[in-house]
Computed example of a mutant assay.
Amino acid sequence: MDVEKINSIIDLFKASGLDEMSLELKDFKIMMKNNKLEYVTSNVIKNSDVKELIIDDEKNTNGDWVKAPFVGTFYSSASENDKPYVEVGQKVSKGDVLCILEAMKVMNEIKSDRNGTILEIKAKNGNMVEFDEELILIGE
Rank of each mutant, 00 (worst) to 15 (best):
D11V: 14
D56V: 02
Y39F: 11
T41W: 06
S8E: 13
L12P: 12
F28E: 04
V44P: 00
T61N: 04
G17P: 10
I9Y: 13
L23I: 15
I10D: 13
K26T: 11
N47D: 14
E20A: 13
V44A: 06
V44E: 07
K36M: 08
N47W: 05
S22V: 15
V40M: 04
K36A: 08
E38S: 06
L37A: 01
D49P: 01
K33V: 07
L12D: 15
A68K: 03
D19F: 15
V66I: 14
T61R: 04
D27C: 06
K46Y: 11
V50N: 02
F13W: 10
S42M: 04
I54N: 10
L37E: 04
D64P: 05
K46P: 03
I55E: 11
K67Y: 07
K67R: 11
K59I: 09
E38D: 08
D57R: 03
I55P: 00
N60F: 04
K46M: 13
K26N: 12
N47S: 11
A15P: 12
G63R: 00
I10G: 03
V40K: 03
D56Q: 03
P69S: 05
D27S: 11
K33P: 02
A15W: 01
K46W: 07
K46R: 10
S22R: 14
L37H: 00
K51D: 11
E24H: 12
T41H: 08
D56I: 00
W65N: 00
K67D: 05
V66T: 10
P69Q: 01
G17T: 11
N43D: 09
F13D: 15
N60I: 09
S16I: 05
E24N: 13
E38A: 05
E24L: 09
G17H: 14
N34I: 02
D64C: 05
E20C: 11
E52H: 06
D57T: 05
N60P: 08
A68P: 00
I30S: 02
S42R: 05
F13I: 12
S42C: 02
N62V: 10
